[in-house]
Design a protein around this nucleic acid. Sequence first.
DNA 1: ATGGTGGCGCGGCCA
Length: 256
Amino acid sequence: MKIATWNVNSLRVRLPQVLDWIAAEQPDILALQETKLEDKNFPVAEIEAAGYQAIYSGQKTYNGVAILSRTAAQDIVTDIPGLDDHQRRIIEATYGDIRVLNVYVPNGEAVGSDKYAYKLGWLEKLTAYVKEQLAAHPRLVLLGDFNIAPEPRDVHDPQLWENSVLCSGPERAAFRQLTGLGLCDTFRLFNQEESQFTWWDYRMAAFRRNMGLRIDHILASQELCGATTSCQIDKTPRKLERPSDHTLVIAVFGST
DNA sequence: ATGGTGGCGCGGCCA
């Protein structure tokens, strides 16, 4: 089972890149964030012509998540129970015997801002929900744009970013709360290097200078953790003309 | 350098 995540920063703009990528890589599942599309405008025909099915929860201008898949989605959820949130940030479904939860965690803007408080509250609700989901679904993948660089080695300049949004203590503590439920960071099962990033600011030629952060993640439940055969960052789409500011993470899970 | 770039949508917000 090959599962990938990609914050596309507008599916309307990035659709040709998405179609090219799935044709080349043939994933079983591709989780998308920041589709920025209302559901009535989702490019269903193009996705189906490529041999994929789609589920989606979108809104105009901001946010929006989707999952493309080879097989049909079952038991679809688009809201965290008990969280009254009009922002479209989660979509979850079962594919075969794997539960997939795709998240677009709030950015948080700046430490101490209203959006930062919203982010921490949102993560608390997510964590409680993931705990429930893990109990019900031992084979769970939680993936997406977490907007958190878990450790200093996930940041191009840890001192510059220290205590900034995406790197602050409370955000990293929230990430540890999630992994503490029994989820592994699949990328770190295989790669312990510094300077392995998934997002680079559009400004200041950040990609060319590799000034990035690792904020997109694929977390797996203990049962799947042992079945993970690879997890890699695919930087090729970030090199294209008119790229998203994020690139893909791809994990492969074998049978257990 | 308190900027810079990109998406949405056409002014200002968000990342």
